[in-house]
Design a protein around this nucleic acid. Structure first.
Length: 730
RNA sequence: GCGGGUGUGGUGGAAUUGGUAGACAUACCAGACUUAGGAUCUGGCGCCGCGAGGCAUGGGGGUUCGAGUCCCUCCACCCGUACCA
């Protein structure tokens, strides 16, 4: 009889006991203090659970067990973020419905997670792709559509309160977060509108709204690509050209919450680095909007945003984004050819390319001039792709003496570099962004210091009605449409007005969930519509109106899931008031830092919105957050001898005698650094059967190195294998 | 490019304010015990050197009586960069 620890039997027995006795089932129990420990739920990929997943799950499991022993009622759930691109790509290739592969992957994940013996309450499992779950994702979308952001109360309110304000006061003095170019109207004008006209007007104020956004469009694939799927201006699949194209998309007005998202960081126990990343992402800057008149065009003015209005006398050029809507009108015939060529070129460049290449200057003169309102000088108007249409006003003023990129631009196009501060040094050699000293060559602010000059200019501009102080955020509103199949359908249909304009309407709440229709292929349609367009003939609201064909992004389902765990089976609400008021918020959230500016920001946004509407208890959803690190892997290497006719590998101890190239080899065919040569030949089709191996002591010894664990380094170990070999506790 | 982070033995990591660098653990080496070992115990273990000693916290420079810690500068790697999850 062997006396060693029989982990296979013992672990299996206890896991069975826990399941039968529901040992880890959580309940609303007002007699006990609660503790909510949450893991970032995984995407169920086809590769199965990676060893990186348990790294965080082990930490949270330790906390969950510890808190239970301390007498807390502990909520420690697990679920699956099961909508996403990989399942859709697989469906496109195989015709297999993504729901089927997703189901299989989840089954595997659950088996793996149970083998590890985590103390999850599996009765609360959620799956974002399950209609009983996405019913509530769609419901939240409906609430966002039915809301506007009132800056007076500093919260989201029902669109009904806006209707009331419009009927009584109109929108002239209304403080709402909305599109900049919304026409301001009087109460009389509002009341004189027809019902459809009023409805169309309200669309400008909703927190979920339609807007033009720039996307990566691949004409050959007929689809929109993620930046991730674009490499060097070509699609990763197929290598086709990708261009920047404007499309009508759903967006979420997250910018309405920018300031609250900043302030909320002060009350959460998250790492300083993570908070800093969010602050920088939101990017609050205080500056000034200034309007420049256009020479020869009386009815239009170009608006720029600047954080350094004090440098306005140093302006020697102006730059518009190539996508700016007035480009066609502002381009003179003599420059038309150059401008067209430049725009064509920028269309091939991703946003990341555009802002990251600062060494090379590119741009083109439009032939037009604007007028500096302070000194009435003519300022040449250029296009350059470092200016982004989606940020600020899509136009910037060029001040070469104070900004290095502007300085480079001015040198390249041989533009003047006027000095504006007596403290600026060597501006013929480089820009000097100092705010020190007194202004020179600067009209009404000559002799002043920075603060006085800024205040004087803002006051002057506001009096003349051509500028005003403004807070600008770097963060943009969040695009919410995806031209994909495997996501939540948007619960909207389109109905034409009397004039034929299509307006979006919500379906009835009682009609939720709006389930994904079955389609024959998962590709976009031949006319470039999203995949759901394939169901258009039969999939109609009340048999006559087209539904929205785009689906929601991956972040929709993950931006509220912690509430569903509180009351996962509830069919009447996303969670009952009783459950929400007991569990309140996540006490400890564990996951990767890569979610700093995506998931964690979107989730805070939706949480604040749900709080405004009174559906949840807390302003911040995760009180404490810990980022787990990454798993390192021990990589193995083989050494291929260079410049030989016959493919030859030399063992590690002898490699210095040859000219060799080190190649990663799969660690799963290496044991104690000894390579399984036969398996190596079998598993690699780039290694011929007659390959030579120069051995030492009859063995092929591999080299090794510690690196990030990743597929490309062939150093990934499978948790199943490790558990089978050593047991879950190990 | 920009934002955030990390760099200390084979590995995970210690080192309170600037005051003995490498605690603790693991791996490895040698030995003991044992029917057996994925158990236990003992010793060794940053690098060079027989030794005395010298060198060493990504590289270079600086401040200081004294620097892993402070300053400057450079490098490498990781995360994010808005439709991967």
């Amino acid at each position: 009889m062997r006396s060693e620890y029989q982990f296979r039997d013992i672990e299996k027995a206890w896991q069975g006991f826990w399941e039968q006795n529901q040992t880890f089932k959580a309940q609303v129990n007002p007699n006990k203090p609660k503790y909510y420990v949450l893991d970032m739920f995984p995407y169920p990929s086809g590769a199965g659970l990676h060893v990186g997943h348990p790294l965080g799950y082990i930490a949270s499991d330790i906390m969950a067990r510890y808190k239970r022993l301390q007498g807390f009622e502990v909520l420690h759930p697990m679920g699956f973020d099961s909508f996403g691109l990989p399942a859709e790509q697989y469906a496109i290739q195989t015709g297999q419905h993504p729901a089927i592969t997703t189901e299989q992957n989840i089954t595997r994940y659950i088996e793996q997670l149970k083998n590890m013996g985590f103390s999850f309450d599996w009765s609360r499992e959620v799956r974002t792709s399950d209609p009983s779950y996405y019913k509530w994702t769609q419901w939240i979308f409906m609430q966002l559509f039915n809301s506007w952001y009132n800056q007076d109360s500093d919260k989201a309110e029902s669109i009904e309160t806006l209707k009331h304000i419009l009927a009584v006061k109109g929108s002239v003095g209304l403080k709402a977060v909305c599109e900049d170019d919304v026409e301001r109207i009087s109460a009389e004008a509002w009341n004189a509108m027809g019902e459809e006209e009023q409805y169309a007007y309200l669309l400008n104020f909703r927190l979920a709204y339609l807007d033009d956004s720039v996307v990566n469009w691949c004409p050959q694939l007929g689809t929109v690509l993620a930046n991730d799927e674009v490499k060097d201006g070509l699609s990763e699949r197929g290598g086709y050209p990708v261009e920047q194209k404007k499309m009508r998309q759903w967006s979420m007005r997250i910018t309405a919450y920018a300031d609250r998202l900043l302030r909320g960081l002060e009350e959460v126990d998250w790492s300083d680095s993570l908070k800093e990343q969010q602050r920088n992402w939101i990017g609050k800057s205080i500056g000034t909007d200034v309007e420049f008149a256009i020479e020869g065009i009386a009815d239009k003015k170009i608006k720029v945003f600047t954080t350094r209005v004090d440098t306005i006398y140093g302006v020697s050029f102006m730059v518009l984004a190539p996508e700016h809507e007035w480009v066609a009108e502002l381009t003179k015939p003599a420059q038309q050819v150059d401008v067209d060529a430049y725009i064509t070129w920028t269309k091939s460049r991703s946003e990341l390319d555009r802002v990251s290449e600062v060494k090379t200057v590119s741009g083109v003169f439009t032939g037009s001039y604007v007028i500096n309102p302070l000194n009435n000088e003519r300022v040449p108007l250029f296009l350059a792709d470092y200016v982004l249409a989606g940020y600020g006003t899509g136009a910037v003023m060029g001040v070469p003496s104070g900004d290095q990129r502007d300085w480079n631009f001015a040198k390249h196009f041989d533009l003047p570099i006027p000095a504006i501060l007596d403290a600026q040094k060597d501006i013929e050699k480089q820009a000097d962004n100092t705010k020190e000293g007194k202004y020179i060559n600067s009209g009404i602010i000559n002799g002043m210091g920075y603060k006085e000059a800024t205040d004087t200019l803002i006051q002057w501009l506001e009096e003349k009605g051509i500028g005003k102080g403004k807070v600008q955020y770097r963060m943009r509103n969040a695009v919410f449409s995806r031209q994909r199949y495997w996501g939540e359908p948007v619960p909207v249909y389109f109905k034409p007005t009397a004039t034929g304009q299509l307006l979006p309407y919500l379906i009835q709440e009682s009609e939720l969930p709006l389930e994904l229709p079955k389609i024959d292929k998962y590709l976009p349609t031949e006319t470039g519509e999203p995949p759901l367009g394939r169901a258009a003939d039969s999939w109609k609201y009340q048999g006559q109106y087209d539904y929205e064909w785009s689906t929601m992004p991956g972040w929709a389902g993950s931006s509220w899931y912690w509430y569903r765990y509180m009351d996962a089976q509830n069919d009447a609400a996303f969670a009952s008031a009783e459950a929400v008021n007991y569990w309140k918020a996540v006490d400890l959230y564990i996951g990767g830092s890569e979610h700093a500016t995506g998931h964690l920001l979107y989730s805070r946004f939706w949480n604040k919105f749900l709080k405004d509407l009174g559906y949840v208890a807390e302003e911040e959803f995760a009180k404490k957050l810990i980022n787990q690190g990454m798993i390192q892997g021990r990589s193995n290497f083989v050494y291929r001898v260079k410049n030989t006719d016959q493919v030859t590998f030399v063992s590690h101890g002898l490699k210095d005698q040859y000219d060799v190239a080190a190649l990663h080899v799969d660690v799963n065919i290496v044991e104690n650094d000894i390579l399984d040569v036969e398996e190596f030949k079998r598993s690699r089709n780039d290694v011929p059967a007659d390959a030579q191996f120069i051995l030492e002591d009859g063995k092929y010894i591999c080299g090794w190195e510690v690196e990030k664990m990743s597929k490309s380094k062939f150093n990934v170990v499978n948790p199943d294998d490790l558990i089978a070999k050593y047991g879950a506790d190990t």
